[in-house]
């Protein structure tokens, strides 16, 4: 079964492009449809993607790619033993994506990490605060325009 074709036929106006480079099936979509697609992936009995393996982001500033950010979701199905990568395009002007917390609770921490490192906001996230860095940290270090050697004072927790 070709997962890419199935998704393309189901959501023709959502899918921007697809590829299966290195054998990883990938679907690039508009960010508005991420919750719709994720719901379909999770509850469709044919696909049955019951695990959100990884969620991250890539900043394409240095590669001059438009739009600047791409959210990268890796799904895995324990029952069907297949994987899928979904990438959602995010513009620099409005770095905001819908949360997947309601579908997979693990998205809570993964999305906090993306907010911490890339400054992308998640709509309806229950607890969107920094996870690896401290609240007083200025900037989002994994963005390509954040200098590698920049120093900031470490401020410990207040309570």
């Amino acid at each position: 079964m070709n997962i890419i074709e199935l998704i393309q036929n189901k959501f023709p106006d959502l899918v921007v492009s697809t590829h299966d480079q290195c054998g990883d099936q990938t679907v690039v979509i508009r960010k508005e449809g991420i919750v719709t697609l994720a719901k379909f992936l999770k509850y469709d009995p044919e696909l049955d993607f019951n695990m959100l393996t990884d969620l991250t982001c890539v900043d394409y500033l240095k590669m001059n790619q438009e739009p600047r950010f791409e959210m990268v979701y890796h799904f895995y199905s324990l029952t069907k033993n297949h994987r899928l990568r979904v990438k959602a395009l995010v513009e620099e002007k409005s770095p905001e994506v819908d949360t997947l917390c309601e579908l997979w609770p693990i998205a809570n921490w993964f999305e906090r990490e993306v907010w911490d490192m890339f400054g992308i906001r998640f709509k309806n996230h229950p607890n969107l605060k920094r996870i690896l860095l401290y609240e007083e940290f200025v900037g989002h270090p994994l963005r390509k325009d954040y200098p590698y050697d920049k120093r900031q004072p470490i401020i410990g927790p207040k309570n």
């Binding site: 490192m117 920094r130 690896l132 994994l142």
Partner: peptide, 11 residues
């Protein structure tokens, strides 16, 4: 609460 051993591996 985590992050006490963050060493910026990915950066």
């Amino acid at each position: 609460e985590i992050g006490y051993l963050h060493r910026a591996f990915e950066k």
